[in-house]
């Protein structure tokens, strides 16, 4: 109980840290979504990053930096293991496999008492994560995504997203691109897990389930998957809103749900599509082109 109270206070006073952390996760998901990979593996990656880094800092007494790196590598390795067999298949099998992965990790975390503390989790984790760590990671991330988008790699990724058959016939190794992006996504989420663990004093299996994965998907999708700033906008919005609605727990859930539904219904291409529509209508008056693409696809 004490831990939960401590976590409550920590998360309330550290809303900025939380926004930064969630933005980082949002970019991790953005990488996967940018090549049409609907990943529910975030919870699993974060759990791997969190538990492994906590083990390294608390049990083995390693410094924070190598522990975070190790957490990130765990996430990346897991992504390679899941991605390699499943990414060649069409349809939603990838989504199902990533979901299955997150559940496996959660169940293991729940039962491997000696390593994870089981259902009780691990408490009094030293608070090593500093705000500047998160800022730095986020800046690097934005630079990477921005540079990628401006290069021929970004062009290939955009082609994969819209029509992977075309990408293939133009010489893009779609499988290798998808796998690399997914591994990068695992790396980021693993790193975020390590940061999260050393931010909250406490980790437990409940922090990393399906809800965590779907929340993480919400950030970039809500913010818009076509804009560089989309993930940040979505993450900050969904992080600050519940804090602002803290006056009533149940009412908050209802209001929050209603708000998200409203955003989705009125801005079906994400919050940042407001800007895009305005720009387009200023030029040629046809904002419909972008939305017409998925339907002409086979």
């Amino acid at each position: 109980m004490n831990a939960a109270v401590a976590q409550f206070i920590a998360s309330y006073s550290n809303i900025i840290d939380l926004c930064l952390l969630n933005s980082l996760i949002a970019y991790g998901l953005f990488l996967a979504l940018s090549a049409n990979m609907f990943s529910l593996a975030t919870g699993g990656f974060m759990a791997l990053g969190a538990y492994s880094s906590v083990y390294l800092t608390m049990e083995l007494g390693l410094p924070f930096a190598p522990a975070v790196l190790a957490g990130a590598i765990c996430g990346a390795a897991a992504a390679a293991l899941i991605g390699a067999p499943v990414l060649r298949l069409r349809g939603d099998y990838f989504m199902l496999a990533t979901f299955g992965f997150t559940e496996v990790v959660r169940v293991i975390a729940l039962n491997w008492d000696s390593f994870t503390g089981g259902a009780l989790g691990i408490v009094s984790i030293p608070r090593y994560t500093q705000t500047w760590h998160l800022v730095l990671a986020l800046i690097v991330m934005v630079y990477v995504v921005h540079t990628l988008r401006g290069s021929y790699f970004g062009r290939a990724i955009a082609a994969i997203k819209q029509d992977d058959v075309v990408a293939q016939t133009m010489g893009v190794n779609v499988f290798a691109y998808r796998l690399s992006l997914f591994v990068a996504s695992g790396f980021i989420c693993g790193m975020a897990g390590a940061f999260a663990a050393h931010l909250n004093y406490f980790i437990g299996p409940g922090d990393f389930g399906l809800v965590r994965s779907v929340d993480a998907l919400t950030y970039p999708i809500l913010g818009g998957v076509n804009a560089l700033a989309g993930p940040v906008v979505g993450a900050v919005f969904t992080t600050i809103l519940p804090e602002a609605l803290r006056f009533s727990n149940q009412l908050r859930e209802i209001l929050m749900g209603a708000l998200v539904v409203a955003v989705v219904l009125y801005l079906p291409d994400g919050a940042l599509s407001v800007l895009k529509l305005r720009r387009r209508s200023g030029k040629s008056g046809s904002g419909k082109v972008a939305t017409a693409t998925p339907r002409t696809k086979q």
């Binding site: 062009r155 075309v166 002409t296």
Partner: peptide, 28 residues
């Protein structure tokens, strides 16, 4: 099968994909 919301030039540029030689480190 064109990428409808991208420019004509961007579409044609996709055709040059194989001719790019620089790797990720150089790009970053």
């Amino acid at each position: 099968r064109l990428l409808a919301d991208q420019t004509v030039l961007a579409n044609v540029m996709l055709g040059t994909h194989r001719s790019h030689r620089k790797g990720l480190p150089s790009v970053f």
